[in-house]
Write a protein that binds this DNA or RNA. Structure first.
Lengths: 369, 369
DNA sequence: ACGAAAACTTTGCGCGCGGAAATAATATTT
DNA sequence: AAATATTATTTCCGCGCGCAAAGTTTTCGT
């Protein structure tokens, strides 16, 4: 691997440091070192300034304006470490998702993060990088930051469930996306029974009843719920349910969908020409396999195969053909999860009953089914 | 939107809290409140314990073992806020990427994060969510955390360049992926001249010389370098360069590739049947457009169009057909970026000269070209 | 076994803020 | 205008740790 080194202009860090002391590029006024000095400069007592920074609306309007005027002049911000050391509780909420490399979790993580900010908290997002052990490590690392609460999207089956349950006794916690029974104050997610039921209905009404394509050993507990929902849906329509498994373990879901899909298609092993995939990533791989084998996928009369997914993956709009799928209501899930953790934090008490809230998924009809 | 509420078992937060005081689920020993108490419990003086936590190898082996034995018994961890308040510098490195929703940045962000951990720092990853203003906000927010250094993948053209430059005078900073001239101590990235040159060579040798498909107003400065590299490459081969622009602004790159690609394909507006896309996301959209129009893409003799990308997007393996592209050396970039920021941090001085390090891209031959 | 070097202990200050209590000033009500 | 309620000030302590200096013990080399 070739490596180029180019040199540019010369300048010195230490010099710059000295030069910016006192009069830096950001301010034209004498440096404020702490709240004491800022209070003096703004003509307000330190405890009142402290009060302002905890909640600007807790001080009188005239006081607030004087502080904010000084703030514009002096560019002071309280030392976050001193604050967090002394406050009853920090203002931060930990957000843990199984794998930020999965666009589904990137998206829901982002929405949850924004919901936290809207609610006045400081979100700290951590990815478990696909490794259940990292989930435990993330919880422990977060403990050191003494967050006011934790929003956890757990692996589920692969999580250290007892650790999560015990941890939830220590810090307010709300689960989302995937549930662990009796862990934390609440769970918020999508109603897989409804969403898969909806998709099953749609597929049964518009053509051959679907078979289900899923991982043999799914990491996610939602996969199990989806299977049950598929079975129920097929029974409701009086059709024989048929399940096809993809082998493989890990997070290369598309890879498994491609490899196993190709094998199964070549062998004619799919018992139906309509395939409902347990999630979009699997469907993306399967679409790729079908394309490679020259199999025309779609809902048209000239098509040999129908493929549907679940989750409305960011790329499902650009697959070939575009993927018919179920869209989860990220926004509603995030908002309610934050609302519930906020309630636990602010009342300093768990709700009397652990609440499970499930939102409906929406059918997104595209080309593939 | 329907919403289900289910109720589960009843238990009380406050009770649990009281119950875990003293003897919780995590420890069987009396609670340690601070380093003083832990020092007493381990039979070592507090300053030595403090020294241990700053660098375990800085104390004698026997001392280390006594502390670690106590550590296993008492489950103590130093207050991170008190530490960060009093240490000369924190142990954290801020990592800012333009958009974690873009799998390219998710991936490089993850690799940089891991490289930081390997180097003994605590990474803090922030996404600018596709908004240049958020980049500035992230820098300011990070300032409050007093990081030892910052690794910034800037927007580039859209960044507040002067703010970044001024900021880099305040905190050690190394740029990666995209450069801003004379900002920070160093830049590490991919050599677009080499990588696009490589791709241009490949395409010219194996068929019709490519035209370039790019955004009219690219957010990323790398796009400009790639255009220049394309022009140089075509000139080298004695071919007339031809550039086709996609309209649109924002981060829905695939969407623009699909929409504009469809329009251009329908109009027969591409001046070559080989199309080099400025990046994979654009290529993904264009592939989708070609598929929709029934245009066969690939390097085979029966194909009407060849399409190539750049970046080896996680999904480029699963497009239809799979995408021929350039893979960047994430690992090398991340490692060197961390190494350089570590040097600035540890020597407390900028290198005499701003270093620009560029790694080669690798050609990934797949089906599309 | 001796001296020097290294590691540890003791002591004490300081960081920048939160929080509490008593007091003083200002707003609002009647 | 006086009485009350609200808000701000003054004063003080505490949080949990880093850091430094001086003194003591342990380790290591010869």
């Amino acid at each position: 691997m070739k490596l180029y080194w180019r040199k540019e202009k010369v300048y010195h860090w230490v010099k710059q440091c000295l030069a910016t002391t006192g009069k830096g590029p950001f301010m034209q006024n004498p440096k404020i070192r702490n709240m004491e000095e800022f209070a003096k400069a703004s003509g307000i007592s330190r405890p009142t300034v402290s009060k302002y920074f905890q909640d600007p609306m807790s001080v009188r309007r005239s006081t607030r304006e004087r502080i904010e005027t000084a703030l514009r002049t002096y560019d002071y911000q309280p030392n976050i470490y001193a604050m967090n050391q002394n406050r009853r509780r920090t203002n931060s909420i930990g957000i843990i998702v199984p794998n930020l490399a999965d666009p589904f979790f990137t998206e829901i993580g982002r929405v949850v993060e924004l919901a936290c900010i809207d609610a006045g908290y400081s979100p700290i997002v951590r990815s478990s990088h696909g490794k259940p052990a990292q989930e435990t490590a993330n919880l422990e690392a977060l403990k050191a930051l003494k967050p006011a609460g934790i929003l956890l999207a757990p692996f589920g089956r692969a999580s250290d469930r007892d650790h999560v349950r015990a941890f939830a006794e220590t810090v307010p916690m709300v689960l989302f996306d995937a549930d662990i029974e009796e862990a934390g104050a609440a769970f918020v997610g999508t109603d897989n029974v409804q969403s898969i039921g909806l998709m099953t209905d749609y597929l049964c009404r518009t053509g051959e009843p679907p078979c289900l394509f899923e991982m043999r050993t799914p990491l996610n507990p939602n996969a199990n719920k989806r299977r049950l929902a598929y079975l129920a849906g097929m029974e409701r329509h009086g059709h024989e349910p048929r399940i096809v498994h993809a082998e493989g373990s890990g997070w290369s879901i598309e890879e498994f969908g491609l490899r196993e899909g190709r094998r199964l298609l070549e062998d004619g092993a799919f018992p139906s020409r309509t395939i409902l995939c347990s999630n979009d990533r699997l469907a993306i791989g399967l679409l790729s396999a079908a394309f490679g084998l020259g199999i025309k996928v779609g809902h048209g009369s000239d098509c040999e195969l129908r493929i549907a997914g679940h989750d409305d993956h960011p790329f499902s709009r650009f697959t070939c053909p575009s993927l018919t799928t179920i869209a989860q209501d990220y926004g509603a899930i995030a908002e309610l999860a934050v609302q519930q953790i906020a309630q636990v934090i602010e009342t300093e008490s768990m709700p009397c009953e652990r609440e499970i809230s499930l939102f409906d998924g929406k059918l997104v009809m595209r080309e593939s089914a």
